[in-house]
């Protein structure tokens, strides 16, 4: 039963990784941009929620609801004023700008909030659990996983059934032709990054309620997110969820064998997938 429990916990943990990854996947799918500051933006959002909870005493979920439009604006501005200027055929400038942003964000947060571990308090929800027969699962992990499924479902609906989604897909396929049809790729990019930051806020909410965080842990979240995207295959959001679950299961199994191997096991699962399926399990986008 311990193994079944390990696997279930791993899949639920994968929900958190899928939330980390969904925003990254969205931005990459539309503008072929890898945001190296993605992990640090998650931590930034977590501190924003913490600040709102601390100053207003609101429930964390309501605080996240307040933080989401702020994060949308941050993402929109980042894309419109900075990243749009460096997007082009050469991948070096956007990579280096986001790398600079990653270092700047990490140290800005360190200066503002110190290196102390923080946590978003969620009251009774933190320890609540549900008995599902053979396994007992925490309400919080379950809620995380359900949110990941919900976010990915909504993103897919947005992509395939709305005018904005059509603009996303058109710009992704061919930005020049899309602009001939009256779409402004730069504004589409800005909206996409804003949207990615809304998902980042959701990821930050669960990250902050489930575990301690401090300004230095952003890069590791970026790496988990990246691994989930690559395992799932570029451009497939459901693939990203599966990728997150694979990393999560590998980590919980690794931790079950030896606590020091938790992180390592996740990375090794990623390398194995890369070895046998270099383009991921469900590749869609061609790049």
């Amino acid at each position: 039963m311990i193994w079944l429990d390990t696997i279930v916990q791993g899949i639920l943990l994968g929900g958190l990784y899928a939330l980390f990854a969904a925003g990254l996947s969205l931005v990459f799918g539309i503008m072929r941009l890898v945001n190296l500051a993605h992990g640090d933006l998650i931590i930034f959002a977590a501190f924003a929620i913490l600040l709102i909870v601390g100053s207003t005493g609101l429930n964390p979920f309501l605080a996240a609801l307040l933080a989401a439009p702020v994060m949308f604006a941050v993402g929109w501005a980042l894309q419109a004023f900075v990243l749009n200027r460096v997007l082009g055929r050469d991948i070096l400038p956007p990579l280096l700008v986001t790398f600079g942003l990653s270092v700047a964000l990490q140290n800005g947060l360190l200066e503002a909030f110190s290196a102390d571990s923080q946590r978003i308090r969620a009251g009774a929800l933190e320890s609540a659990s549900i008995d599902l027969g053979p396994v007992t699962v925490g309400v919080m992990p379950l809620l995380t996983f359900a949110s990941a499924v919900g976010a990915i479902f909504l993103l897919n609906r947005l992509f395939y059934t709305t005018a904005l989604g059509r603009a996303f897909r058109a710009t992704s396929d061919d930005a020049v032709t899309a602009s001939l049809m009256g779409i402004n790729p730069r504004s589409v990019f800005a909206i996409a990054t804003g949207l990615a930051m809304v998902i980042v806020t959701l990821a930050a909410l669960y990250l902050g309620m489930r575990s301690n965080f401090d300004p230095s842990i952003g890069p590791a979240r970026l790496i988990y997110a990246f691994e989930a995207v690559i395992i799932g295959g570029l451009g497939s959001l459901w693939g990203t969820l599966l990728g997150g679950a694979i990393i999560g299961v590998a980590q919980t199994i690794g931790a079950q064998i030896n606590p020091e191997w938790q992180i390592l096991a996740g990375h090794i699962a990623f390398l194995v997938v890369l070895l046998i399926r270099p383009r991921g399990l469900f590749p869609r986008a061609v790049d």
């Binding site: 900075v82 790398f99 600079g100 700047a104 140290n107 800005g108």
Partner: peptide, 17 residues
């Protein structure tokens, strides 16, 4: 310390822009 690294990161962004 942190302020220095913050400035270094921003300097890299400004240089790239």
């Amino acid at each position: 310390g942190a302020i220095y690294l913050l400035a270094l990161g921003l300097l890299a962004i400004v240089t790239m822009l």
